[in-house]
Simulated scan of single mutants.
Amino acid sequence: MTNLMKIIDISNSNFDDIAVVRYEMLDLEGERLKCWLSRGMEGELEYMRRSADLRRDPRAVFADVKSIIVTLTAIKKVKPHSPTLAAFAHNNPDYHILIKNKLNLLLSNIREIEPQIEGRAVVDSAPIFEKGLAVRAGLGWIGRNSLLIHPRLGSYTHIGLLLLNKDLSSECQVIEDQCPKGCSICKDNCPNGAINGDRTVDCRKCIAAMTIENCSDAYALHNHIFGCDLCQQYCPYNSDIEEIEPTIKEDWSTITKDSFRAKYRKTSLGRVSFEKIKNSLQCAKNQ
């Protein structure tokens, strides 16, 4: 193993899993997205429709890309709490910043060996098929709830990408779908019926979309005010994930706008406005 590949190895990378995939067009994922959009499943997430064509080609994110390092960062489950926030809100300040810093450090370490290498770190913010790349890199498969499932880490992970202008890839062994035949645990535990039968989700019904994205509250929020983990909580591949106590214990009925901004603007909760949180809280109470 070369010094460069040693840096990318899981034992040295500071990620919970890591792999490299060669650049190629993501036409299969693009066709699936096109079909999903044709059914109106994006709801009010207009950016999904606007960016659909861009997502097929990683060069839309980094023009000189020749290979992509795909990383997984594990998070822990959170014990039941009310009102409910998704596990990732309790696990770290803001995973976008945390993972991007780790990716940029990885890029710096790579450039110490080969200074001519350039790259771009991406965390859940660019028009690219992160889950599709993770599957192609052999890091898991797409579960029936549309999430990436890793055989060891389950679905409680964040995907990070480092697009490079050098081909570092080797042959990836794609992991075949390992969801038990006939299993519908994730679908059965979605109270709004948002999980379709083709490993996609209807964002018009999805609690996570309704509480985080610019979506209506036409369906019940079931006491959730930021994200939702219901489809993950009982998945067999998540049964061994460590469960922690909630770290956010807030009196949401009395918190002020200034206090919310001061406490949460640099956390995952900073993705939504104070008004969005209060609206979700009110909807959860009324339903």
Rank of each mutant, 00 (worst) to 15 (best):
I175R: 05
C190Y: 01
V78F: 00
R22K: 15
H81K: 04
F226N: 11
K276F: 05
I18R: 03
R111G: 10
L164D: 10
V123R: 00
T71N: 09
E243Y: 06
Y156P: 07
C172T: 15
G160C: 03
I68K: 00
I207S: 05
V201H: 06
D167F: 08
G154K: 08
C186E: 02
A126H: 12
A52R: 02
H96T: 03
Y234K: 13
E242T: 15
S155N: 10
E213S: 15
D202L: 04
Q287W: 09
N214H: 11
P191M: 00
D17N: 09
N279L: 15
M41A: 15
Y95S: 08
Q232S: 09
R271H: 15
S239F: 08
L148M: 07
Y234R: 10
F88L: 07
F88M: 08
S273E: 07
V20N: 00
Y234S: 09
I244G: 13
K131T: 07
H90L: 06
E118Y: 08
Y23M: 13
V20T: 02
A134D: 02
S184G: 01
Q282L: 13
V122M: 07
K131N: 06
I244S: 12
L105A: 09
Q232D: 10
S125E: 11
M1G: 14
A63S: 15
R50G: 00
C215D: 13
N192Q: 10
G197M: 05
S38V: 02
Q233E: 15
N214G: 12
T157P: 04
M25L: 15
I68W: 00
C186D: 02
R59N: 01
S82T: 15
S239A: 15
I99H: 06
A284L: 08
K266E: 10
N14L: 12
